[in-house]
Design a protein around this nucleic acid. Structure first.
Lengths: 395, 395
DNA sequence: TCTTCTTTGTTCTTGAAAAGACCTTAGATA
DNA sequence: TATCTAAGGTCTTTTCAAGAACAAAGAAGA
């Protein structure tokens, strides 16, 4: 007879961690708003807020404008109550950063390395660099976020299938950080982490979004209902190794033939650029040439976008996302790339699925990797359950 | 340093509704097991269980075998504490059923109708038939589940885009049931509902599954992390209207050209069957012929599976599901159909995505539609929050 | 066979925590 | 200036769950 609508904020009495989340995501800035959102009594809100302020997670800010009576005091999230470390490991480059609890970079570093470098060597250097970065940082390290290309096991904190990073599969990564900081490590796939960078701060408001990572390889991060999908074996989003007719028998770096990457991946564009007499060392150089006006580079990017769009159209029909975010190195040439993507998507996807569909550039551009790693760590470290257990632990 | 693993059953103290769910899904049958699973004290468990028993939702069953001391009394979910009504509306046929809280059919009915019948006429008849079915039923109606082909708005309880059911878009359906029973109505897409029928009882244990509805049209229900995905506009899973090269310029019933349905949908197989001199009235007849050994019908089903598999392969790469369930009318000829699907999928999907991948027939076969509608209603009606609020309301 | 142990389930006491009443603060409005 | 309204703090009451004590009922061992 009536529709059952599940619109209450929380089923159980809201905990301190949940109140922090409401403040952190901007849904509440006064105690009264917390009261209205949670249904808690004033005394309960007061008690939780004071436990959060005494733990340093909340600060009492300015007095706000009165709404007819005593003006409320603003509650502000203390973004400097801690930091997170972020490491985005790529095939040939690794980005590092220390970020505050809002996901703002405090210090950063990066390192180019040999393709095929092993975990012992690279991780040791990463830890050394973090030691330097942390010298001028006071707040405690609350978490570490790390991304790798390939399939990962987040529960065990290791790679379980990466054709790009040979020698990393099965190696637990947490021990490398043991002496650096007593903080938990969270690992994620590079495309998933890119997707998380788009979610940062929005707290899942985006809903359903596909995030393309178009770099040397092609990956897809899937956000459904505000959550990142990982699939049965953690291999969701493996868009680059879909077999497409246009790729014919071209051999892929994964060992198969006819993968989308062989005609649309960054590595194949670099190879084709060389064939046409314009050798470049990395996709990033190709993108730079395109931005400078090089017509060959622009054509290749557009072609790649077109091929990607063919597969993306199926993904759009499946997920009915609100937006498609284009990130990765090729995302830097957004206009050229998205033109090709759009062309295919609108031709092949269902009208209802493309109605209202937005194509957006990556919010954090070249920094999206580390920002996403930070978001991965922050999602866990600032989650209500984690906050509550930390409050309980500290008394 | 250490991995954060979120393995506790519930963040907040477990409510009566959560205890009921543990019993209902078979994870606990004694009070002690509830204690172990929730961390609640014996007194708290006792209090909640007695409120559930006095509400009639739990029954005290047999004494179980002793484990060294006093033998525990079994807790059994009272599947007869209420019933749900299920209506699966199809293009030309509607199935109705009354089911207990375990999803077992008590009584059922079905009705063939004209393609294009309007909501006023059909819903009136449905309600009339339910009135008859309910005559011999004592337990109260707790919820009503209804499915329609096309895109629905679950919050408002109406269709928002169905090319198959013309005249239904924008018509609120709850009012039709107002006089029948004071129970909430829940509406869902036919493919999503099919997916829910697979989840029934398992409580999301399946994890990540794709459920194909291969009937007159082609639909896909997506289960990710035990939850049904619906997408931004509720249009997720629109697999049938993906443009595929093999379809060329064939016109689709949706108005576009080149949709997958034009070569693999049930309606196109029926048309092709007629072209080859074997006219049939419905896909179900074609499937029946295939099961009787008709080679033309078998060939058409296999071709359809093959074409579907091409698109499904992309979906499998994207989702990395643990299993693909094949339901709908064509799913009744599982062996012939899945042979074609398998062929394409293993050729086009990535090895990691197809490793461990299972193809399963629909658990509930021809009854899956109504069972899924019941599952939709039961998911809401038996959810912890709904149970708790009902307990609170009744005192 | 009888005692003791173990596990289950209930009742009573105790303690923690949240709700609500009451009070103070402080700007808006007449 | 007086009064109203809203925000925030303090005290009391109520609720609810944990823990202790106790009863029940079978298992294990003397």
């Amino acid at each position: 007879m009536t529709q059952l609508v599940e619109n209450r904020e929380t089923a159980a009495p809201a905990t301190a961690g949940e109140l922090l989340e409401l403040v952190r995501t901007g849904r509440a800035i006064t105690r009264s708003q917390l009261r209205a959102l949670t249904g808690l009594s004033r005394t309960a809100v007061t008690a939780r807020v004071s436990s959060l302020t005494s733990a340093g997670l909340l600060l009492l800010g300015e007095e706000l404008a009165s709404t007819g009576g005593r003006p409320p005091g603003a509650l502000v999230f203390n973004k400097d109550a801690g930091v997170v470390l972020a490491v985005a490991i790529g095939r040939s480059r690794t980005q590092l950063a220390v970020l505050d609890l809002d996901g703002q970079e405090l210090t950063a570093d990066s390192r180019d390395h040999e393709v095929g470098v092993g975990p012992d060597e690279l991780m040791a250097e990463i830890v050394d660099r973090f030691r330097v970065l942390l010298e001028s940082i006071e707040p405690p390290v609350l978490g570490i976020g790390l991304s790798l290309p390939g399939t990962l096991d987040p529960a065990r904190g290791l790679s379980i299938g990466s054709p790009v990073m040979s020698g990393w599969d099965g190696v637990p990564l947490a021990p490398y950080f043991a002496d650096l900081a007593p903080a938990p490590l969270f690992v994620g796939n590079d495309a998933d982490v890119l997707a998380r960078s788009e979610l940062l701060g929005g707290a899942g408001e985006l809903g359903d979004v596909l995030v393309v990572k178009a770099s040397t390889g092609l990956g897809l991060g899937i956000i459904a209902g505000g959550r990142v999908l990982s699939g049965h074996l953690g291999a969701a989003g493996e868009i680059g190794h879909t077999i497409v007719d246009a790729a014919g028998d071209l051999p892929c770096r994964c060992g198969a033939v006819g993968c989308l990457e062989t005609i649309a991946g960054g590595w194949s564009l670099v190879a084709r650029m060389a064939e046409s007499g314009h050798p470049v060392g990395h996709v990033r150089e190709l993108v730079a040439l395109a931005l400078q006006g090089d017509s060959v580079a622009r054509g290749l990017l557009r072609d790649s976008g077109r091929e990607l769009g063919q597969v993306l159209a199926v993904a759009i029909n499946l997920f009915n996302p609100a937006a498609v975010v284009i990130g990765g190195d090729m995302g830097a040439a957004f206009d050229f790339y998205v033109a090709g993507v759009r062309e295919s998507v609108y031709r092949r996807a269902a009208p209802l699925a493309t109605r209202d569909l937005k194509f957006l550039p990556s919010t954090h551009g070249a920094r999206a990797g580390v920002v996403g790693c930070a978001a991965l760590a922050l999602d866990h470290v600032l989650s209500p359950v984690a906050v509550d257990s930390r409050l309980a632990g500290q008394g």
